[in-house]
Design a protein around this nucleic acid. Structure first.
Length: 280
DNA sequence: AACAAATCGGACAGGGACTA
DNA sequence: TAGTCCCTGTCCGATTTGTT
């Protein structure tokens, strides 16, 4: 809903934007004479100036500049405009600490296809692949995944980035990725109970045994996280929309998850969980 | 266990409407 | 014109939150 947005203009907050919508100014093109009476001449000029700039940016396909002007709490609005170039992203590591950081696997989903990257195999390819996308979607990735990736690869990820954690928190969903999925009706099947720490154990087990099924289980978990990000963002988008006049017209359909490329080994999961409880 | 970012709450400033 | 008040937007600091 970029073309319905006015809060990117300094001096225009959510209240003024809502009043504009109520006055019938639901898109940039509808900001024409006669202007709503509650706006002073000064405000009218301010909005005119900024809209001219916004139109130019939209024409140049420079939505990144547009995004930077948008208050953090409103970044979700750009999502549909990037849908054809989005990377849902999640990484697994050898632990939580930034000191002994070591990325073990990366999973990337672009809405159609799943890509995975494994340390010791093809991890380096990620650096080039990620450049293809204009939007990154993560859960808590601003604080964890992105800094970790930037440190590992020595580059900066300059794409637009929607972090689902604060977005969902604002909608009342807290409790981590798994908690949010549960509250929003997503089911993990055999992977219920597998978490980030378990992924660390799976990697250790894989290093020890070199069993392909161990790696496949880890990747199944990693991919599940990534694929679910799309459903969560679509639901969050629709919930955000509910407070606007565009709830019906801009509503997004729930995505269809891709064919599962990796299958978890249920017996292995049970065995490792047993070992965890046993205190190993 | 460290860290980054967003949110929240409260304080503050400025525009605009109204009155005398 | 001066004085006042309300609404809106912004700023600052503290707090919340979750990642493997």
């Amino acid at each position: 809903m970029l073309f319905n947005t006015f809060v990117h203009i300094p001096g225009i907050g959510e209240t003024t934007e809502r009043r504009l919508w109520q006055a019938g100014v639901t898109t940039w093109d509808k900001f024409v004479e006669p202007y709503p009476a509650f706006l002073s001449g000064q405000k009218v000029r301010l909005i005119q100036d900024h809209l001219a700039r916004s139109r130019a940016q939209a024409a140049q396909q420079a939505p990144l500049d547009f995004l930077r002007q948008l208050p953090a709490a409103q970044r979700w609005r750009i999502f549909p405009h990037y849908r054809d170039s989005v990377a849902y992203l999640d990484i697994e590591t050898t632990g939580l600490s930034f000191n002994d950081h070591c990325i073990t696997t990366i999973s990337l989903y672009d809405g159609k296809e799943v890509f995975t990257y494994v340390q010791g195999e093809n991890l380096a390819e990620f650096a080039e692949d990620i450049q293809r996308y204009r939007l990154i979607v993560t859960y808590n990735g601003k604080a964890f995944d992105v800094p970790m990736l930037e440190r590992h690869f020595g580059f900066r990820l300059t794409q637009a980035h929607i972090d689902l954690r604060p977005l969902l928190q604002g909608l009342g969903f807290v409790g981590g990725l798994k908690g949010c999925e549960k509250q929003m009706g997503l089911d993990r099947g055999e992977l219920t109970g597998v978490d980030g720490y378990f992924a660390v154990l799976l990697w250790r087990e894989y290093c020890r045994t070199r069993e392909p099924r161990v790696l496949e289980t880890l990747l199944a978990y990693n991919v599940e996280d990534t694929v679910n990000l799309e459903s969560l963002l679509v639901q969050a988008y629709n919930l955000k929309l509910a407070g606007t006049p565009f709830a019906e017209s801009h509503r997004l359909d729930m995505p269809i998850p891709p064919e599962r490329a990796f299958l978890p080994d249920v017996a292995l999961i049970a065995r490792l969980q047993g070992r965890m409880r046993g205190g190993y």
